[in-house]
Design a protein around this nucleic acid. Structure first.
Lengths: 248, 248
DNA sequence: CCGCCTCATTGACCGGGATCAACAAATTGT
DNA sequence: ACAATTTGTTGATCCCGGTCAATGAGGCGG
C-alpha cells in the first residue's frame, strides 16, 4: 500500500505517455508548465480504493497507467460498474463536491493528480484545458449511452462479445495495428468485475465465455488471454452491424 | 408539420422561461445579445424526428418546452432510450459531426436553435457558455450512469418506481413544492416509450403499473395521471435508500 | 353512429439468466 | 511444500420478464 510512493518524482510532462491524449492535450508549453508545477503522482495497488461514493475528494487527474473502475452499489449490495477508465482518462469531478460512485484500482494504477481547487482555478484561465475536458466528457457520455443500450437490450452472449470487441479494438489501437483477425489481448479484470460491468452474474459470464470458446468465436489460453480468430464473427455475436464501422 | 412556424418570432431572451437554467445561464447581457442575434425557434409535433442517428446535424440548441427522447436502435429493431430531455436541456453535439442517436419529439416541442458553426465560434469567445455546457454535460453523465445502474441491476418493479419517482420530483420541483405525499403529475410518454426507456416490454410495464396500483403505492386516473400517496413507499419500491437524499 | 386506429391491459406459456451448490484451478501465506 | 484463500467452471433448478395472443378503451374522421 505504498500509495504515496513517487509523489515527488517529477517526471517531465513533455515525456509523458499520455501527453497527447489526456486533459492536457491542447495545452501549449506555458500552460503545460503551470500544470507541471501543480501535478503530483500517486500509485495504487489492485483493489485499492481511490475515492468512495459520497466522499469529498480533494483531488482529480488523469490515469497514467493501469485500469480504474467506477461503480455504484445499492444498499442491498447489488453493484453496477458505470465506467472502466484506462490510460489518459480523466478521474474526478470539477465543480462538484463529491463523487457519486466508487473509484477503485483494478490493476496497479498510476495517477497524475492535481488539487481540485488549484485545477479549477487554472481551468478558468485556460480555455485549452476546459475545451479538452468538455470533449472528453462528451466522449464519456457517448460511451455511457452505448452501454445503456448494452445493459437494457443485449443478451448475455452479446454483452460478452461486445466487451471483448471493445478490448480487442483497444489493444489493437494501442499496438498501432488494426483490430484484425488473430489479434490477441489480455482481459484486464476478473470475471466478477466483468459481471458487474455487463449487468450479469459471474456464472453467466463464465458460461458465455465457454460457449464462445466452444463455437470458435474466441480462443483462450488461461482465463485471461483471449484471441479472436475472426473479428467479423465477434462483431456478429455482439449484435453490431458488421458493415462499415469496423474501427470507428 | 409546421416545423418552421415561429422561426422568425424573436422573443426576448430576457423573458425566456429557461433563461436561468439553459446553456445561457451564465451569460451576461452582452453575451446574451450575441446569442439573441443567432437564435431562432422551431416547433415539432409529437412523433416528429428532430435528428436521425448518423445524420449530419446543422443545428443545436435548447429545449424551450416539451419533451424530447434520445434513443438508439439495433439493426434488428431492439431499441433503447438513452435520454429524456425536458425544458432547458441541451440538444446536439458541439465539436461532433453527427449524432449517434435519434432525437424525436415526444410531446409538442419548441426548440431554441443555433447554427452549429456559429454557436461553436461563439463558444470559443464565451467562457460562460462553455462552462455551463460542461456543467450540463457532467449532469447528463451522472444521469446516464444512474440509468446504467437501473438498467443493469434493478427489477422491473424497481425500474417503474424509479421512473415515477423522478417524474414526481420533477413535477414537484416545477411547481415549487416538495415531492411530498399526495403529489400528482402526468406521465409525458406512452407505455411503449417507458418500456424503451427502462429496458422492458410494454406488457411488463403495464403489469407493474397494475401491481403498484393494487398495493396502493400509486393511484391513477386514466392511464396518464399518476398520484403518489406515500413518497417514502415509492422510494422503497424503487430500491433507493430512503434516508437523507429525499430531494437530492 | 360506426369502423378504424392507436394505446393499454390481461392471460397463458416459455426460456434466458439468476440462484444454489459443488468442484477445479490458480494464487498467497507460512 | 502445503493449507488457505481467491478466482473460475460446471451442473441442477427456479423464476422474472419476454413472447404470443386476445380483449378493452379512447380518439377521430366520415
Amino acid at each position: 500500500m505504498q500509495n504515496t510512493a513517487d509523489r515527488n518524482a517529477k517526471e517531465r510532462c513533455s515525456d509523458c505517455p499520455i501527453r497527447h491524449r489526456a486533459v492536457c492535450t491542447y495545452c501549449g508549453d506555458d500552460e503545460l508548465a503551470q500544470l507541471e508545477a501543480l501535478k503530483f503522482y500517486r500509485n495504487y495497488a489492485p483493489g485499492q480504493e481511490i475515492v468512495a461514493a459520497g466522499e469529498q475528494s480533494e483531488f482529480l487527474g488523469s490515469v497514467v497507467e493501469g485500469v480504474v473502475s467506477l461503480s455504484k452499489t445499492m444498499s442491498d449490495g447489488r453493484r453496477q460498474m458505470v465506467g472502466l477508465m484506462f490510460a489518459s482518462d480523466f478521474i474526478g469531478r470539477p465543480m462538484r463536491q463529491s463523487s457519486p460512485y466508487d473509484a477503485v484500482a483494478v490493476t496497479p494504477v498510476r495517477l497524475c493528480l492535481f488539487q481540485k481547487r488549484r485545477f479549477e482555478a487554472l481551468m478558468i484561465k485556460t480555455p485549452a484545458l476546459e475545451k479538452r475536458l468538455l470533449e472528453m466528457m462528451l466522449d464519456e457520455l457517448d460511451a455511457a449511452r452505448d452501454w445503456m443500450l448494452l445493459l437494457g437490450r443485449k443478451t448475455a452472449r452479446e454483452k460478452i462479445a461486445t466487451f471483448l470487441m471493445i478490448l480487442a479494438r483497444r489493444a489493437a489501437h494501442a499496438a498501432g495495428a488494426r483490430a484484425e483477425d488473430g489479434f490477441q489481448f489480455e482481459l484486464p479484470i476478473t470475471r466478477e468485475a466483468i459481471a458487474d460491468y455487463l449487468g450479469l452474474t459471474i456464472e453467466t459470464v463464465s458460461r458465455q465465455f465457454t460457449s464462445l470458446r466452444k463455437d470458435g468465436t474466441i480462443s483462450m489460453t488461461g482465463s485471461r488471454q483471449c484471441r479472436v480468430p475472426d473479428f467479423i464473427a465477434l462483431l456478429d455475436a455482439a449484435g453490431e452491424d458488421s458493415d462499415g464501422g469496423l474501427l470507428s
